[in-house]
């Protein structure tokens, strides 16, 4: 076997390892049996009953809306943060970045617990709102991570020129700075959305009774057995994301991709 083939085999094995559980879940979504231990023949019925389950639809709505809203607010705050950090001197910049990165570097369980204790002492009611606040918090560092490199590449003189020509600070920012940051902002938003969607641990500690995201719902079903509709739903989500990303990747400009290269 040549070296090239050996390398291909190695990559193939690793990706098989990474994707084997996903293939398993896709197969289980077509399994005509309530338990995952037995193959009961091929069926599409979970894909139908999925949309009849109010519980699952509600959890899906919570998951998607929290991901969308938290990504939006985290991107907003993260962009402001990048502008502020750029203006700082070396020490305060290092301190700011250090503190901002805590939720990314710290253990999720500690972040979850710390937010839970905060919400308790603020007397907040645990539920949708507390999950959203937590997700915004842990998303901010990922957004900053995506935007900061773009920020560094900016030429401050273009903004100065806009101001000299009479642009207001806000107008100048949106006309001159914002377009250059946009690829980073989009990457940050997508990253935040993904992180929020996949989160379980922090949601587990900051959710209230009766409110479920898909993750917490799955976790509560572990002992009694996962509903097959859940496999169907994840397969649908996975397939649509795959399709979407393949389409984006096919676009010639591939803004996000280009941006990631610069990070």
């Amino acid at each position: 076997m040549t070296k090239k083939n050996l390398q291909r085999l190695y990559i193939g094995l690793i990706f098989f390892f990474l994707y084997a559980p996903i293939i398993t879940l896709v197969i289980l979504s077509f399994n005509d049996s309530r338990t995952r231990a037995r193959w009961g023949g091929f069926t599409f019925r979970w894909y139908g009953s999925l949309f009849q389950s109010d519980e699952i639809m509600w959890a899906l709505f919570n998951t998607l809306s929290i991901a969308l809203l938290s990504a939006f607010f985290a991107t907003l705050i993260g962009t402001i943060a990048c502008v502020a950090i750029m203006r700082m001197k070396k020490t305060s910049r290092a301190v700011s970045i250090g503190i901002t990165n805590i939720p990314m570097l710290n253990a999720e369980i500690v972040t979850g617990i710390s937010l839970m204790l905060l919400f308790i002492s603020l007397g907040l009611r645990f539920g949708y709102g507390t999950i959203l606040l937590s997700h915004i918090t842990f998303n901010i560092p990922y957004v900053i991570l995506c935007i900061m490199p773009k920020m560094r590449q900016l030429n401050p003189s273009t903004y100065e020129a806009a101001r000299d020509l009479g642009a207001s600070p806000i107008y100048g920012f949106f006309k001159v700075v914002f377009p250059d940051l946009l690829p980073g902002i989009i990457a940050g938003f997508l990253m935040a959305f993904t992180m929020s969607l996949d989160d379980f641990i922090i949601t587990h500690f900051t959710k209230g009774p009766g409110v479920h995201t898909l993750s917490t719902m799955i976790y509560s079903e572990v002992r009694k057995g996962i509903k097959p509709e859940m496999y169907a739903l994840s397969t649908l989500i996975f397939a649509s994301v795959l399709l979407l990303l393949l389409l984006i990747n096919r676009l010639p400009a591939g803004e996000v991709k280009k941006n990631q290269h610069n990070l």
Partner: peptide, 17 residues
């Protein structure tokens, strides 16, 4: 990409495997 399949389900899939 695998992150878009729920982390708990992916881990649970290892039970089946």
């Amino acid at each position: 990409l695998p992150m878009w399949m729920n982390f708990l389900l992916r881990t649970l899939a290892w039970q089946t495997l």
